[in-house]
């Protein structure tokens, strides 16, 4: 009895070879994508931080680290600086953030109402600010200078007016400021 053409051994061998080639190409593509992720993750710090931390946005002002008195830059025992910021419709508090150059800085930011965003121009600092979550990110500013810090996530009809200043100063100037207040801002 003659075999149907598709079941002849030579044809199934051809199909198997084709499938194997396809599998190798696919594997190659996936391996390339993973390699790109590894490269950008290690060399460009493109790995999403995933530092998930929750907070009640309605009670920020009552207690914890986002009370009004605790906002601004705080000097830690190890010499690093922690900056706490609240975003709300339509301003950041504090409105002028002062940090020392060449010092590890940890930003802790949250929102009191809707989703805001934050980017510090001239740097790669860029984060969403979500109510209910604390955005934590670490950086070191390499030289003194002034940066603008706009909200880059549409947050309502006053969005375009929402921005703050980041003033990076010499460490010695920062230390002088820190002698006079426990939480520093350059608000007027």
């Amino acid at each position: 009895m003659p075999q149907p053409a598709s079941e002849s051994p030579s044809h199934s061998d051809v199909a198997a070879r084709a499938e194997r080639r396809w599998a190798i190409v696919m594997l190659g593509i996936i391996a390339l994508l993973v390699a790109m992720v590894v490269f950008t993750g290690l060399h460009w710090a493109m790995m999403p931080p995933s530092r998930v931390e929750t907070v009640d946005p309605a009670t920020l002002q009552l207690s914890g680290e986002f009370t009004e008195a605790n906002l601004g830059s705080a000097v830690e025992p190890d010499g690093s600086v922690t900056v706490r910021i609240v975003g709300q419709q339509y301003s950041f508090t504090p409105q002028c953030i002062v940090v020392p150059a060449g010092t590890p800085v940890t930003f802790r930011v949250t929102s009191a109402d809707v989703i805001h965003g934050l980017m510090i121009m001239g740097t790669n600092i860029n984060s969403m600010i979500e109510p209910g979550f604390i955005s934590t990110f670490k950086t070191t500013f390499d030289k003194p200078g002034d940066h603008q810090m706009p909200c880059h996530e549409f947050c309502g009809t006053g969005h375009q007016a929402m921005w703050a200043n980041v003033k990076v100063v010499e460490p010695s100037a920062f230390t002088q400021l820190a002698d006079h207040a426990r939480r520093l801002t350059c608000d007027l």
Partner: peptide, 18 residues
């Protein structure tokens, strides 16, 4: 990496009183 919520700043100076 999985995004389990937890505290990310354990050793900071305590918040100032309100």
């Amino acid at each position: 990496a999985a995004g389990i919520p937890r505290g990310w700043l354990a050793d900071a100076v305590p918040p100032l009183p309100t």
